[in-house]
Nucleic acid binder design. Structure first.
Lengths: 106, 106
DNA sequence: TAATTATTTGGCATTATAACCAAATCGCCA
DNA sequence: TGGCGATTTGGTTATAATGCCAAATAATTA
């Protein structure tokens, strides 16, 4: 693989890896309707605040979300709504795999 | 997060995690035009065959690719072409982040 | 200023990934 | 059947990711 191609797929993988976690996907999903502060997300997720904060940092570093400070809170919003279009595709993969494991052959 | 929602996002994350690697994305991209045998992919990637084989196993377990044995070779094909639609979205994220790091402020 | 709420950061233990080599299989054909 | 090319599997080691706790920072208000 030539260096340029290598770099391209490394960049792609970095963003996709940032989404590759249940909690972070949940955050993306939640932010698709509206922005949320860390405290709201923490309540919804039910993990330690520090854990949620680190997940948000991962999403932010990848450019998937952005944050805005207002008062004592920090609100996160979804910067790339197009990632949502991916959910449907992935769920079709999941359904297809489920069908097979139930005995469906081809 | 309730158990059902948890399960949903865990399933989504499992598939996305399977794509979250430069080599595996490269494979998906290669398979988008046509099927390839392990030996072809190995040549294109330039890693050890065993490494490539394991990456393919990850993609297959997630339902992203399927394989078919013909003769002494095993051909892999892309089962879910919709994942390709994601590449454009992710690359727009990458460009956007690049613009910012070059000094673009809002 | 002290107390309070919101968020991030550092540290640490646990678990998961990735890559290579070597060895085991699998299929094909002389 | 013996051997060869193709592929997977096992083992090992190095690196990265995750989650919690505790502590640090920041903004708010009494």
């Amino acid at each position: 693989m030539d260096p340029k191609t290598q770099a391209r797929f490394e960049a792609l993988a970095a963003v996709i890896k940032a989404m590759a976690h249940p909690t972070r996907l949940f955050v993306v999903d939640q932010l698709s309707s509206r922005e949320r502060c860390v405290c709201e997300l923490t309540d919804l997720i039910g993990a330690d605040v520090s854990t949620v904060s680190k997940h948000l940092a991962v999403l932010k570093a990848a450019g998937i979300v952005a944050s805005e400070k207002r008062g004592s809170r920090i609100y996160y919003n979804l910067r790339m709504p197009c990632v949502l279009s991916f959910f449907g595709c992935v769920e079709s993969v999941i359904k297809s795999v489920a069908r097979e494991s139930l005995g469906h052959v081809e």
